[in-house]
Design a protein around this nucleic acid. Structure first.
Lengths: 230, 230
DNA sequence: AGAAATATTATGTGCATGCTTAAAAACTTT
DNA sequence: AAAGTTTTTAAGCATGCACATAATATTTCT
């Protein structure tokens, strides 16, 4: 007769779906819910933690628990290592280095790191391919002041992507998604038309405030990032 | 001297960052960690729950806890109601209905719902504006078989977005992000060039298997979706 | 009346303990 | 050796209890 925390969570969700609980509605306190569901307050707490994390309810000390007033769509995306994404889809992965040079970062890159001054950085561009077809074009800036070892890595064999993920963990990461028109170079490498709309995943990482890398993963035409919400 | 769960989580994170724990490494079991941190197993469990949810560790019964072998970037995006997003940025929100008609859904839409047959649906297009400037163009298909009440709503006053969110909760939601070239109509409405690359957030929702709505939110040129990971 | 101090209350966190469950490992049987 | 069975192990779940903390409500003081 008594419930586990999943049952409680699902029952609250059901009440929201059935409109027995409307946005802004106040729930009974944990103690009362525990009595209703014939379980301990700890179990209710566990269910409420989950509902709060998914954005279904708001919890405030003394204020109690309320159904979120303005429902949002909360989605979690996992951005994997490109090689693994390709292999997971059962395709053959290959990679080649397009360019590698040391340059002063343009303002766009410096400002993304929160740096006032343009700095010398290692700039690497590379192409990831699935079944010999272009898949993702990677345009990367690496703060070689923070990660000097990268200068000794043979990037024509191993992608900077993987080397960094394995050897330089980060403490902070900012992700942005955007669309951009294909430049002539991008169009050539990704086998698309110039001016085609391309989907871009941009990631900037730091370790304890020091910049590590900023990468634009520019996907082939038609690429979609999919996730299930809730 | 004893730790709370946040301290434990942060210490494990630190060990990963400092490469004291490498990907694939096995952690001591909860009991041993509890002794190390001089706290109860429950507290360790709480920290591990958080680390598992953020994708830092993998936990398997009997298998124990290991540092995630292939680190991924896990990001949570909250997609708010457009009006609230605009108002939160301190801008003035306005909205107008562009079109409203009943049409047979094209294959692209039907297949997004997982429907084999094309079905009659209500198709609504509308423009959301910030400070009188175009912000997001909304191209929506509504399964009026599932939600007949929508036919009586005055969509020139209230956006379908808000009416649905308030009146038709969903049990399942699929989100996809992509880039598309501006059509002539989109370019006109969003004050962009034809062929400009536009960022699209597409959401499809169901309630217990029955389709509710599919919406393409087509953002103005230059729009970026930003999130902090971890 | 308005400000400051105090009490109240609901959630948050932690502890000790025991039972459940999935999966690996060990063992048996074919 | 392969296949099936049992055992063991480590994480997951649940309980009851106590104290911490933050936000609100109430009272006291000026």
């Amino acid at each position: 007769m008594s419930s586990n925390w999943v049952d409680i969570r699902d029952e609250i969700r059901r009440r929201v779906l059935e409109r027995e609980l409307l946005p802004g509605a106040k729930l009974p306190n944990d103690q009362e819910l525990a009595e209703e569901f014939k379980c301990s307050r700890t179990t209710v707490q566990r269910a409420m933690l989950d509902l709060a994390q998914s954005g279904t309810v708001d919890r405030r000390r003394k204020g109690g628990t309320t159904i979120t007033l303005h429902p949002i769509t909360r989605t979690t995306f996992d951005i994997p290592i490109t090689r693994l994404e390709i292999e997971a889809a059962g395709n053959d992965y290959s990679y080649f280095l397009v360019s590698r040079e040391i340059l002063v970062s343009p303002p766009r890159v410096a400002s993304s790191f929160g740096l006032a001054e343009p700095t010398e950085m290692l700039r690497v561009t590379a192409l990831h391919m699935a079944n010999k077809q272009p898949y993702i074009f990677e345009d990367r800036w690496i703060a070689h002041e923070t990660t000097p070892e990268i200068l000794d890595v043979d990037l024509s064999r191993e992608s900077a992507n993987e080397w960094l993920i394995r050897n330089r963990p980060y403490s902070d990461c900012e992700v942005r998604f955007l669309a951009k028109r294909a430049t002539r170079q991008e169009a050539e490498l990704l086998a698309s038309d110039v001016d085609e709309a391309l989907f871009v995943m941009e990631r900037t990482t730091w370790i304890n405030g020091a910049p590590i890398t900023m990468v634009r993963a520019i996907a082939k035409p038609g690429y979609q990032l999919v996730a299930k919400a809730n």
